[in-house]
Design a protein around this nucleic acid. Structure first.
Lengths: 136, 136
DNA sequence: CTTGTTGCAAACTTTTTGCATACAC
DNA sequence: GTGTATGCAAAAAGTTTGCAACAAG
């Protein structure tokens, strides 16, 4: 999917700008990042990019399915690339460690939610807060 | 546990103020409410209460285990009373319906997280986003 | 050339903080 | 009386918006 994003953008009438490429690369590089962190990462190399462009671009990229966001703290949303295979997150309340977990373990839950509540869960957005081994 | 909160506050050296009582009542009444909504609810009856007191009080009450919060939107946190038996939430991305679900369905997941990742999940804080039956 | 995109600055929303006053104990 | 809690106003943090200038197609 390396060049896939170009087609996705063009395909929906979006333009292919350097800013969009830089932001997508930054999200890839960082793994999990808030809009602020994305801005900082991009500015390490290329200087000119505005925070409002970061917000607008992340929104577009998420609409195209190129990035996703989850809430890994009580505060800012964090974006991650979709090149990482789909996963959800465990976050330790104490040490703030973040662990990415394979969605397989969710299958039984997802099926019950579908059966009992006709509800289709969005796995990629899921974050489970709690306490990790070393902190308990 | 009707009068329990008085003891919990006093027991830890906190003072028992009318504001704290009003806020706790409002959370009980509202079910799920953002700090803003708590303020509005309290002001329906008693006029004088400041938003910063709401924030500070909810923090204290959560520390005492008298209320809990979860994130039911990408924005504000919502607080709920712990008199409701423990539950987690399903939130529909489309119609924003909120469903409270019994934690039993989570047992298989919780055990796997404990076994595989030594992680103890905080059920009360959990929110699962997705699409409800009528919206899919 | 046309229209989507960006940068900039300002507005907004939500939450936090400092400090003087008020009140629970 | 003593020290915590509150109100107020200002600051901080995060996000959105309007608009003129710019640049991708």
């Amino acid at each position: 999917m390396t060049e896939d994003w170009r087609e996705k953008l063009r395909g929906r009438g979006y333009r292919l700008t350097p800013q969009r490429e830089l932001i997508l690369d930054a999200v890839d590089t960082l793994g999990h990042a808030t809009p602020d962190e994305v801005l900082a990462e991009v500015r390490k190399r290329s200087s000119a990019l505005n925070i409002s462009t970061v917000y607008r671009t992340l929104e577009v990229l998420e609409g195209l399915g190129l990035v996703r966001h989850a809430h890994l703290s009580d505060r800012a949303p964090t974006y991650h690339s979709v090149r990482d295979h789909e996963h959800f997150h465990l976050v330790c309340r104490n040490c703030h460690e973040v662990v990415s977990v394979d969605p397989d373990v969710l299958s039984p839950l997802l099926e019950r939610l579908r059966a009992d509540h006709a509800f289709t869960a969005d796995v990629g957005h899921l974050t489970v807060f709690g306490t990790c081994g070393s902190c308990s």
